[in-house]
Design a protein around this nucleic acid. Structure first.
Lengths: 127, 127
DNA sequence: TCGTACTTGCAAATGCATTCGCGTTAGCTA
DNA sequence: TAGCTAACGCGAATGCATTTGCAAGTACGA
């Protein structure tokens, strides 16, 4: 069976505390505040298992390696915002109309991704 | 100065003939019909120079390695469609309204990307 | 509390896209 | 047409994110 180790608890709480998609290195940095000895390989192993358990799911952005977010956040349709200052990614609520009008004749759409770029509230405030 | 080699001509014409973003391997496959001895390293070298010359520019999609498209295609704002059957990427004309309404308070938007997924006309026809 | 076997940390190994070194080939100018 | 040198093909090397082997550590049921 699966064990409740302190490293796993630290990783899970890092996701809850952040409330936004995190990459392996971000997770490592955050979780090390609970468990300083935490290793990146353990982060990857834990991520892999959490994906299998459907506790998290991957968030891919153009030209970047995968981040992950809690499945609960992914239960409703949403998109992402990437801050060019701090490189953090945030969840966005809602969607837009009219994507179908972009479709050429004969094309069938089954899904879409939208990514907004700019600077987040935290970075904008500190300018 | 720069030389007009047959490999470079083949690569440039592959872009023109395709009329859509191509990845290094796709370019290799296409250009080898003109120059069978063409090597992948040469494709990469040529792409690098074409980017410096602003003849092409990279197209990044979530979770995939870069494709490239002619700068002429990039002169006007547009987005992309990715076919899940043949893995090809196509340019889409136009854009949508209302992206600003997705933005949380305090966030500033400087750009955006939209990717539609589904099956293209070529694949849809052959089903 | 004990023992088992799941987990971890560490370092080495992968996989992959992309780049480089080098001897050879081939544009291009005189 | 000859000569210079940019460009090529090939195979090895990089860089990076991610994975794995293994010995040591530790959660947790009996």
């Amino acid at each position: 069976m699966q064990r409740q180790t302190q490293q796993r608890v630290a990783i899970e709480s890092a996701f809850v505390a952040a409330g936004r998609p995190l990459g392996p290195q971000e997770i490592l940095d955050a979780a090390r505040e609970q468990v300083p000895s935490l290793n990146l390989a353990t982060v990857y192993r834990t991520l892999k298992r959490m994906i299998e358990d459907k506790a998290i799911h991957p968030v891919e952005l153009p030209g970047e390696s995968a981040r992950y977010e809690l499945q609960s956040a992914a239960e409703h349709h949403h998109h992402h915002f990437r801050c060019g200052e701090c490189d953090a990614v945030y969840d966005l609520e809602g969607c837009v109309e009219g994507l179908h009008k972009l479709l050429p004749a004969g094309f069938l759409m089954t899904g879409h991704d939208i990514v907004l770029y700019g600077s987040c509230a935290a970075c904008g405030t500190s300018l």
